[in-house]
Design a protein around this nucleic acid. Structure first.
Lengths: 211, 211
DNA sequence: GTCGGAAACGGACCATGGTCCGCTTCTATT
DNA sequence: AATAGAAGCGGACCATGGTCCGTTTCCGAC
């Protein structure tokens, strides 16, 4: 293939867009169908065969696109996750920038807890390919770490961030809320308490003058 | 042999022991075979068919005994878990009774972290039927809660206990140690730091070190 | 010992996730 | 427009977890 050098440079700048038209169309088809089926039946009831049939493609195509069932679920989660990240990065306070760090951190926990619980079935179905594999979890950890730094917490921040996020993972939350029947509010209050202990500000907000 | 009425009452008091001889034998057979196969091939490579064949029983028997693959793995974990519980309840300090609460708590974390990592594959394979379903997880939580009480920590102790245990769960640990390549010692130190913050007894932080 | 019923057994059978490979469709090039 | 080669497609095929049910085995009662 004798190719114009310019053509070869473009992809370097443009990067990672080589997807054929039919492939893109099928992805849309599959994603839409999958979302609909999840909404209808719940994530657990969605089989790859049924999805392929409903989207009008072959089963092989489904796996080609998403690699595995987990990958498909992760892809579905992707929308939600992006939205969440956007809310954290540039949404309104207190989740977004503008509020004091501790408030942001508490808002982050609240938001994370609720969305996690909301999409628990999907997240569980996504398994390893899910939040952890994608940037999802690491983004949250990074952000918590950032907030901890702003709060002038010292110690091993990456670990501390993960430790704060760990009780907000699906298995823990489902155990507490669905099995033990604890009210969400209580779990959330418990988490806020944990955060305050870690941050070292037992009570209310510090006197004005921070940052 | 004889029609002693007491025999009929016994099960009520004795409770939950009616297992036929062949059933018991097959359970042993299966458990042994499973342990051997896990040791040989790793938990992920053990299929229910192969296990049944190796134990010389029918596949149906395997499922009758253990309910599911996860149940089988949980059964294998059971030994380890019992041993751990025994060590906590009546083993030597600092894990067992005799040491001051904070030391016990730190020892518990250490021990838990290492055993969890050691049996990670099995635990993962056990899934929902695993630690969480059996008394395993709840025992640990209960004990942590107990230690926190001894330390006169106040707050929502059940939640705090779970929050402390959460970063020691398999997915978190595997991410940190296996994927991120953090040394176990560091993770452990991070956990100890977390504990001290929660307990409210700040570490003897070396001024030039992590501070 | 033998009998009756309950419990356990075993393996054929099913459902579903995942792979494979020959065929089709797209797209860059001329 | 024609073409060649890559990318994608589809569905038969495989592996494995899990179920079902007719048959066998155990055990307490006579």
């Amino acid at each position: 293939m004798t190719t114009d050098p310019a053509r070869r440079l473009l992809p370097l700048a443009d990067q990672a867009a080589p997807e054929r038209a039919d492939a893109a169309r099928n992805r849309e088809l599959l994603l839409d169908a999958a979302a609909a089926m999840v909404a209808d039946l719940g994530a657990d009831e969605v089989t790859m065969d049924a999805l392929a049939a409903r989207a009008g493609v072959g089963k092989g195509t489904v796996f080609r696109r998403f690699g595995s069932r987990g990958g498909l679920m992760a892809a579905l989660l992707d929308h939600t996750e992006r939205a969440w990240q956007a809310a954290v990065i540039s949404g309104p306070p207190p989740l977004g920038p503008g509020a004091p760090p501790l408030e942001r951190l508490l808002a982050l926990g609240d938001s994370r807890l609720r969305t996690t619980l909301q999409h628990a079935a999907l997240i569980r179905a996504a398994g390893a390919e899910g939040a952890r594999a994608s940037g999802a979890h690491s983004f949250a950890a990074l952000h918590v770490r950032h907030l901890l730094a702003q709060l002038e917490v010292d110690g091993d921040l990456p670990l501390l961030a993960v430790a704060l996020l760990a009780p907000l993972e699906v298995p823990v939350l489902e155990q507490q809320v669905r099995l033990d029947g604890l009210p969400v509010e209580r779990v959330l209050a418990g988490w806020a308490d944990l955060v305050r202990r870690v941050v070292g500000r037992p009570a209310v907000t510090p006197p004005g003058g921070a940052t």
